[in-house]
Design a protein around this nucleic acid. Structure first.
Lengths: 237, 237
DNA sequence: AAGTATATCTTGTATATACAAGTTTAGGCA
DNA sequence: TGCCTAAACTTGTATATACAAGATATACTT
């Protein structure tokens, strides 16, 4: 059974994106929506809360829900989105080059974090090329208990597609950290840095649904090409 | 009436932070919680969903809710948090210096965005000093229709406290953007840059509950002291 | 002993009802 | 006209019930 509140959410998103419901106009009231979608008010409210959380509408008590236009800017490095999904959304013509693919050596720090008792840890290094320039260096580490096989083919496409589709693992949440560092020798080797003396590093700890640490990622961006957009709601308290 | 699901949420947060409910253990089941808190299951579920959204627990269908330890890292520039709230949370000894306070000149770009028809726009420039070093330059712009009075005193404390407390305005949401720029003359004048050739800029459009644009902020950080941490949930689709 | 089916936990979805609380509208009164 | 009140909207909270779907433990069968 497909979830009703999700199909309603998707439908409303489509209508907002397609400007069938324009920005700065009111949505139909919750009661009207229950009639339109032939469902209960609680189900409508679940859909509306999703819209609110994702920055499509602003709910105002006693009045209704206004469509807001924050979403049109969206370049979401926010949330957990794979590079492939991202470049598809933005219609970027980009190329992925697999630079390294194998197991880490004993001494690397990351091994301890992905607490893989005597197991091997995959290490993938990829560069992302946008309009001829090598802009992004992605370093990915996986536990090979969870990801037994990894090929160059998979890495050139989407690792996430492989993980969620083929392996059937479910990503739960991630802890993201953004800092600015000085470029390493590796950065200089793999990227077109053009004299930039800083590099923006997005460090990502990705956990599965069962809360086990599954992946560590560093996405290293040339600072002039880096942009992070986020939508935030004020939390009272 | 105080909202039940919020008090339950607050209570559980307190218990998690106080390690009364340790990391990696299960919460009581929803049914048990309804008994403990003498309420309905839906109310419990609202509290648990808040915990999940804010990175305290991971819900697993058919099993229960696990306390996760992501929150201990939290340095939340994420969300909308005022500098004062932040430094209080982190127990930083910091100083705020008001460098400029007045109305913008006609020609500044920002005037158009805060579409204030012939009205004045407040401009506040403040530096944040942490352990003797001027690290952050905050530039704030307000529409004086919404914020008629602004004093040096208010700016040295928390403008947000004044806005939400005194003026009674309710912040709705914000659009945040992080980019890396070259330092301007102003940055060099007000900050201790120590030869850094880049500066991290957090641009913030803040909207009120009625979706009107209320404030534009630029928070300009020295790159070595900048750190952004975020908690993200995987959105299927 | 091993595997299978069943019962019983868990969380997820959908519905209905009631009332609280904020906003707008309509009407009436001075 | 101007002001106030009441009614009729809106969204927010709390509760109850029913069933679906995933996970786990138990008992039974082979």
């Amino acid at each position: 059974m497909q979830k009703k509140y999700l199909t309603i959410y998707d439908d409303l998103v489509k209508k907002i994106k397609g400007k069938e419901i324009p920005v700065n106009t009111m949505l139909p009231s919750e009661n009207e929506l229950t009639v339109q979608y032939e469902t209960s008010r609680e189900t409508i409210r679940k859909a509306l809360n999703l819209l609110s959380q994702n920055g499509y509408i602003q709910k105002i008590r006693g009045k209704g829900s206004i469509v807001i236009d924050v979403h049109k800017f969206s370049f979401p490095v926010s949330g957990i989105v794979s590079y492939k999904e991202l470049s598809k959304q933005l219609h970027l013509s980009s190329k992925t080059i697999v630079q390294e693919l194998g197991f880490i050596k004993e001494d690397e720090e990351i091994g301890k974090e992905l607490d893989t008792t005597l197991e091997h840890v995959w290490k993938v290094i990829r560069t992302r090329e946008i309009s001829g320039e090598k802009i992004i260096l992605d370093k990915d580490y996986f536990n090979n208990q969870q990801v037994p096989i990894l090929t160059k083919d998979i890495c050139e496409n989407s690792i996430y597609e492989y993980i969620e589709g083929q392996l059937g693992l479910t990503i739960g949440f991630a802890q993201k950290e953004i800092v600015v560092e000085e470029p390493t020798e590796e950065d200089r080797r793999y990227l077109d840095l053009e004299g930039f003396s800083n590099i923006v590093v997005i460090k990502n700890h990705v956990y599965l649904e069962d809360t086990s640490l599954f992946q560590y990622t560093e996405s290293r961006h040339r600072p002039d090409k880096f942009r992070f957009i986020d939508f935030a709601r004020r939390i009272q308290g």
